[in-house]
Amino acid sequence: MSVKRKPPTLQQKKEEVNKKAIVWTAASLLLLILLIVVVIVLANAGNQ
């Protein structure tokens, strides 16, 4: 019995999609943290 192997091009595309997903996730987290910091700064400015 021969074992079928996936073509290497599919593996490369899958890795590329994963890299894009990591970049989008990192960018989203950074924007979320930035938004939280801005809200905290504005809240502190409003209390003074």
Rank of each mutant, 00 (worst) to 15 (best):
I40T: 02
S28N: 13
K13R: 13
I22V: 14
K20Q: 11
T25E: 15
L31P: 03
L32I: 11
A21V: 11
L10H: 09
K20A: 09
V38G: 04
V3K: 04
R5A: 01
W24D: 15
V37Q: 05
V37K: 05
L30V: 08
S28V: 11
I40D: 07
A27N: 06
Q48A: 12
P7W: 05
V3W: 00
K6W: 01
Q11R: 10
K6L: 02
L30I: 10
P8A: 07
L31N: 11
V39D: 01
I40W: 00
L10M: 11
L29N: 09
V41A: 03
K4V: 06
T9C: 08
L10T: 04
A26C: 14
N18V: 01
L42V: 07
L35C: 04
A26I: 13
M1G: 08
K14P: 04
T9L: 11
L30G: 14
R5L: 01
V41R: 01
K20I: 03
L35M: 02
P8C: 02
E16N: 01
T25Q: 14
A27I: 09
N44P: 07
L29K: 06
K19Q: 10
I36E: 00
P7C: 04
K4P: 00
I40Y: 01
V17R: 15
K13F: 15
Q11E: 11
V3F: 05
V3D: 02
G46R: 13
I36L: 04
K14S: 04
L30P: 03
L30N: 05
K20E: 09
V38C: 00
Q48K: 14
T25H: 14
V37N: 08
S2T: 02
I22G: 10
V38M: 02
L34S: 04
V23L: 15
Q12D: 06
T9A: 10
E16Q: 00
M1P: 02
N18W: 02
S28P: 07
G46W: 14
V23I: 15
W24S: 12
A43S: 06
L35K: 00
N44Y: 13
Q48Y: 14
S2N: 07
P8L: 07
I36F: 09
V17N: 11
A27Y: 07
T25S: 13
K13D: 12
K14M: 08
K19P: 00
V3C: 02
A43K: 06
L34W: 03
T9P: 05
L30Q: 07
E15G: 07
L32T: 12
E15D: 12
Q48E: 14
Q11L: 09
S2L: 08
T9S: 10
P7D: 02
S2G: 04
A43G: 08
L30A: 15
N44T: 03
I22S: 14
V39H: 03
A27T: 12
A45Q: 15
S2W: 06
S2A: 02
M1R: 01
T25M: 15
S28M: 13
P7L: 00
K19N: 08
P8D: 02
L10R: 07
K6Y: 00
N18T: 05
Q48G: 11
L35Y: 03
T25D: 14
L29I: 10
A26E: 11
